[in-house]
Simulated assay, not measured.
Amino acid sequence: MNTKERILITALKLYNSQGVNTITSRHIAAEMGISPGNLHYHFKHTDEIIQTLYDRLSLDFDAIILSMESPGHIDITVIKDLTRRSFELVYTYRFIFLHFVEIGLRIPAVKKDYYALTQRREQQFLAFFEKLKSDGVFRRDIPATVLQALVTQIFIIGDFWLSNNELTLKLKGSKAVAHYSNILFNLFYPYLVDPAQLS
């Protein structure tokens, strides 16, 4: 593994455990046992590290969405799997979501990209819902405005469930992922042709 990759892995671990405000490039370098100069050869400042980690998160989400758009019949198990995989990814990069507003203000490029991403994701989700309707998983009588609201609900829960967890249950790892992905999964109950599939 090269030094640049090690920096990113170490930074992710430290940001996840201690947040973005307390961790400097010196902390990351010390954790790795390298000089700050060596670290700055690869990344000029910590914002560049954060931006790179955000870009990786975005690419990993793209891969999940791409699998969602693959042809073939979709059933409730596909939705459950996509939900779980998304929450696992959020947990992997949890520092971003726990400090999202602050990071967006600190690194305007992240805020700009996130806005563009949500616009793109909205269209992808709406197309996915239409496929669920045509495949007989979702009811066909759901108004477009209700599906639009469902997309917003998914964004709110998906992006901010970690904050709720930190303030309330304080679940860790797979327990946190399982609990909160199940909460989002249950959002689909009113839209299903056969709600018994959720049990």
Rank of each mutant, 00 (worst) to 15 (best):
P108Y: 04
R84D: 15
V110K: 00
D113K: 13
K170Y: 10
V90E: 01
R85Y: 13
E166G: 03
A144N: 06
S163G: 07
T145V: 08
L126I: 08
D159N: 12
T118M: 10
T77E: 14
D75I: 04
R84T: 09
I76D: 03
F100G: 05
S163K: 05
L82E: 14
S70K: 10
K131D: 05
P108K: 03
V78G: 03
R94M: 09
R139E: 12
F95C: 04
P108H: 03
E130C: 05
W161I: 04
L117Y: 15
A127V: 02
E69I: 04
K112Y: 15
F125E: 02
I103D: 02
P108L: 02
N164L: 12
D113N: 14
I79A: 02
R139T: 08
L126N: 06
E102I: 01
L162P: 00
L171A: 08
I142T: 04
L147V: 04
R94T: 04
L167H: 14
E130T: 08
L105T: 06
D135Q: 06
S163W: 11
V101W: 09
T92P: 00
T145S: 14
T77A: 13
L98G: 09
K111R: 15
I142P: 00
T77G: 07
A116V: 04
I157L: 13
F87S: 02
Q123W: 12
S70G: 04
Y115D: 14
N164S: 13
I157F: 11
I79L: 09
I157T: 09
L171F: 15
N164R: 12
F97N: 03
R106T: 07
V137L: 10
K131I: 07
Q123C: 05
K111G: 10
K170P: 01
N165K: 10
P108C: 01
W161L: 05
M68A: 14
Y91T: 01
R85D: 14
I156H: 12
E122F: 11
R140Y: 14
D75H: 11
F160Y: 14
E69W: 13
